[in-house]
Design a protein around this nucleic acid. Structure first.
Length: 427
RNA sequence: GGAAGCGUGGCAGAGUGGUCGAAUGCGGCGGUCUUGAAAACCGUUGUACCGCGAGGUACCAGGGGUUCGAAUCCCUUCGCUUCCGCCA
């Protein structure tokens, strides 16, 4: 959520930044908030004046009663009736104004960083990096949905039987490869200084709101209605919400956390070849990295997170590129996002395997996550996170890019200590 | 799931209708003393909002109510503890 004080001071800049997303109604909505804010302050001034008066009268009544001056006390009590009504009236009108303000502010997306390119869709994203790994596939190369069947390492059909489409079952070496990737990613994150967290997989409404999934993505999360809990769509939600309603000391920054969790997404409205095989699932595994940092360094930190993920992909030997997302393709809560995309030669398409974002104060403001800076001022820190990495598409592209003529798949060097086998489909 | 009890500042813990944002202790911060440290002593130490300022308002788990006045009384939600039941 954008900061009210920012809005008061930098209205024009914020509107300009929101234009990068093509957020057409920015000026209209923000001006509405500003006028409500002015009204709100007028009402508060009035209301607090009346409350102060009321408090004075109440105290004097107390004093009179103690002194035994009952008649004077009774006379004073009579006067309070109208005051109470006035106070109630202003309280109600204040509440109404604040609700109206919140309703608008909650639904305004994060203003993009000025370096974010304008644009409407993925086609306008800027490719800022591409590594030099080239893959030459055997003539009989297959997409992963065929490979998993041939090798009998993932069953989509069994998933359909016990759950539904989008819930794969990993079997044998498939399961072990999956676990190896998790272990490898976590080990690398810990080497980079991230503290591992194992969070709950269900969160309450306040948490969904804090990181911005609610109300924006209401329909995208699984909602367990009987207990009013949401299955997490990403570890970002529980791990960042750890710091909700918290004031950190500057010595506690930067916060660097990582965590492995399954992620649950309803993916309502998805269809076609993008959902084929492991490309898009209702449940998938992911290792997430999260940081809470001082605003001054957040964009340097964003770069280090990109470098971290780059290293993982490079070590896995996968061909990949990095896209700087344009305004129109960015998530609701992000100020700047880089996507990492792995090339799947067998599918002949780029698959998004990671998304790394700086949220600036958008989340910390909602979370009431603050810190005391060196001058003991309370400020909002910047929050960042990134996938490092999302498993299924990595799994798929390892299969596709490392397949051999005999139908087997070669395991990348770095994973072998974890898998304890070098090939799938060859013993 | 049933019953009882409890929920106060970073922590511990007073406070059961009136000047309580809240005693006291510990912790934190600043200082005196000291070659330095410890101890001792002095001071200071919640958050948010309104106001140019003086200052004011709100917050004692959350919400609602009673009252001129609520941390204190009532209702309700949530959480914690203990006992019983169930159970990996």
């Amino acid at each position: 959520m954008i900061e009210l004080q920012q809005l008061r001071e930098n209205r024009d800049t914020l509107i300009e930044r929101l234009q990068i997303r093509g957020y057409a109604s920015a000026a209209e909505e923000l001006d509405k908030v500003l006028s409500l804010d002015a009204e709100r302050r007028r009402v508060i001034t009035r209301l607090e004046g009346m409350r102060a008066e009321m408090n004075t009268v109440s105290k004097s009544i107390g004093r009179l009663i103690q002194e035994g001056k009952k008649e004077q006390a009774a006379a004073a009590q009579k006067k309070t009736g109208q005051m109470k009504e006035d106070i109630k009236f202003y309280e109600e009108s204040l509440e109404k104004i604040e609700k109206e303000m919140d309703l608008i502010l909650i639904n305004v997306p994060n203003p993009p960083h000025p370096s974010v390119p304008k644009g409407k869709s993925a086609e306008d994203n800027e490719i800022v990096y591409r590594n030099d790994i080239e893959v030459t596939l055997p003539a009989n190369a297959k997409p992963h949905w065929d490979l998993i069947k041939d090798l009998d390492i993932v069953s989509l059909d069994l998933g359909v039987k016990i759950s539904g489409a989008g819930f794969p079952v990993y079997i044998g070496k498939g399961a072990r490869l999956q676990r190896a990737l998790i272990q490898y990613f976590l080990d690398e994150a810990e080497k980079a200084g991230y503290v591992e967290i194992q969070p709950p997989l269900m969160v309450n409404e306040a948490s969904g709101y804090g990181t911005g999934q609610l109300p924006d993505k209401e329909g995208q999360m699984y909602h367990v209605q009987i207990d009013d809990l949401y299955l997490i769509p990403t570890a970002e939600v529980p791990i960042t919400n750890l710091y909700r309603d918290t004031i950190l000391k500057d010595s506690q920054l930067p916060v660097k956390n990582c965590g492995y969790t399954p992620c649950f997404r309803r993916e309502a409205g998805s269809y076609g070849k993008h959902v084929r095989g492991l490309n898009r699932l209702h449940q998938f595994d992911k290792v997430e990295i999260v940081q809470v940092v001082e605003p001054e360094i957040s964009y340097q930190v964003l770069d280090t997170m990109v470098e971290h993920v780059k290293g993982l992909l490079q070590n896995l030997g996968l061909p990949f590129r990095i896209a700087l997302l344009c305004g129109g393709d960015m998530g609701f809560t992000s100020a700047k996002t880089f996507d990492m995309e792995v090339y799947s030669a067998a599918q002949e398409q780029w698959l998004e395997v990671s998304s790394i974002s700086n949220f600036e104060t958008f989340q910390s403001n909602r979370l009431k996550l603050r810190y005391k800076d060196a001058d003991r001022q309370t400020r909002l820190p910047h929050t960042l996170n990134g996938s490092a990495l999302a498993l299924p598409r990595i799994f798929a592209s390892i299969l596709e890019n490392n397949q051999n003529e005999d139908g087997s798949v070669t395991i990348p060097e770095v994973l072998r200590p974890y898998t304890r086998f070098d090939f799938i489909g060859r013993d």
